[in-house]
Computed example of a mutant assay.
Amino acid sequence: MTITRRFPATLLALTLATPWSAWADRVYSDAQLHYVNFVQETDGMDALFRAMDEGNIHDVAIMGLGVAKKWEESAPKAPRYYMGDEAPVYYYSATDALLADAILERPAAQQARLHPFIAGFNPTDMNAVNHIRLMLDMHPGLWKGIGEILTRHDDLTALTKGETARANHPALMKVYELAAAENLPVILHSNITSKRERAPIYLEELVEAVGKNPDTTFIWAHAGTSAEIHRYQERVSGLHDIVSTLLAEHDNLYIDLSWTVLEPYLLDEGEPDEEWVALVKAYPGRFMIGSDLVGRFDSLASTIRSFDAFLNALPEDVADGVARTNMLALLPE
């Protein structure tokens, strides 16, 4: 099936230049949504588009999940989540094929709203780059990015079979090089620390990856935070200053503000945090929002709209960038 471009160039320019106040309501782009969950199940495309329309979400950076949870023989029931029991997870490359097939079955107008990322590879495998090349060759023009690459990720890392993935792994350096050559942004999950260490013990892995690949566009998923870190530490100490320094030093780094950043950083007891408002205003093109939903889409509209309390504290043009156009601007034509 022919892959239709998202917009003609003139319409794209008009769309990116139009502030949300010119629309009937704020229009969003979801910068990170997983079509399947950790057992590779999904509500499906019909449910996704209903949820997108309900939430006024025009565009979605959509990806599979690069791992699948094993159902062990001894388990009394099938797991639904990677932390459902102690069984391991394993890398699952078919997730990209599932996503591609689902997109290519849709009408051209719906295809144009979906921007798929390649996620189904082992980030510790020196052959990982070959899987990405294969996907690009199998579906020319379809793929708009790479990721979410799962590296340091709390219990998910502990449950994943094989070598520990890290942002600066030599296998990923080859992936980043290909991403730069193909003009594909990379969504990278790399926790800033472990759930029990308050010092940012994994930050240097991210810094090395970003610093050694200046031609690669990196989107740092959740700014290195996670629900597990918050469960043990409440919040990462000094995260605002760390993000500020990284943005000043690396113009190829962008920040995904999906749900674990919303609380307790962007919002403090429901009120916009002044330091984070000032940071976003200082780097208005470098932040974006995402739902980070995994295969289930009933809460998509409410998840995206939960950012409104923070977006409303920003100037209209900056809010529109964070809510909608910053993600679109990173995608290849």
Rank of each mutant, 00 (worst) to 15 (best):
I149Y: 02
H169F: 08
L99D: 10
A179F: 06
E204C: 03
L136G: 05
I149E: 10
N168R: 15
A199S: 12
R166S: 14
R80S: 04
A181T: 15
P123I: 05
Y81K: 00
T124E: 13
Y91C: 05
M173E: 14
D154Q: 06
N127R: 13
W143I: 00
L184V: 10
T157E: 14
R166K: 15
Y176V: 11
D125L: 11
T124Q: 01
A171F: 04
A75Q: 15
E72I: 01
V89N: 06
A97T: 11
R106F: 02
F121G: 01
E73P: 00
A165P: 10
D137F: 02
E72N: 11
A100Q: 00
P107Y: 03
L114E: 03
K174N: 15
A165Q: 07
A181I: 02
D154M: 10
P170E: 09
G147D: 02
K195S: 14
D96K: 00
G145P: 07
H189P: 09
D137G: 06
T160P: 04
L134R: 08
L159H: 14
A75H: 08
A119E: 06
G84I: 02
E72Q: 14
L134W: 06
L99Q: 03
V175W: 10
H131T: 13
G147S: 02
L150T: 14
P140N: 08
I201K: 05
R133Q: 13
M135Q: 02
P76R: 08
W143P: 00
M135V: 06
A171S: 13
E204Q: 12
V89F: 04
D155E: 12
N168Q: 12
S190Q: 15
L159R: 14
Y176N: 13
Y90K: 05
A119G: 09
I103D: 00
L172A: 11
P76H: 03
D85P: 03
P88K: 08
G120A: 01
I187Y: 04
I192E: 04
N130P: 03
H139C: 13
K161G: 05
T124A: 03
R113E: 03
P116C: 08
E204S: 02
A199P: 01
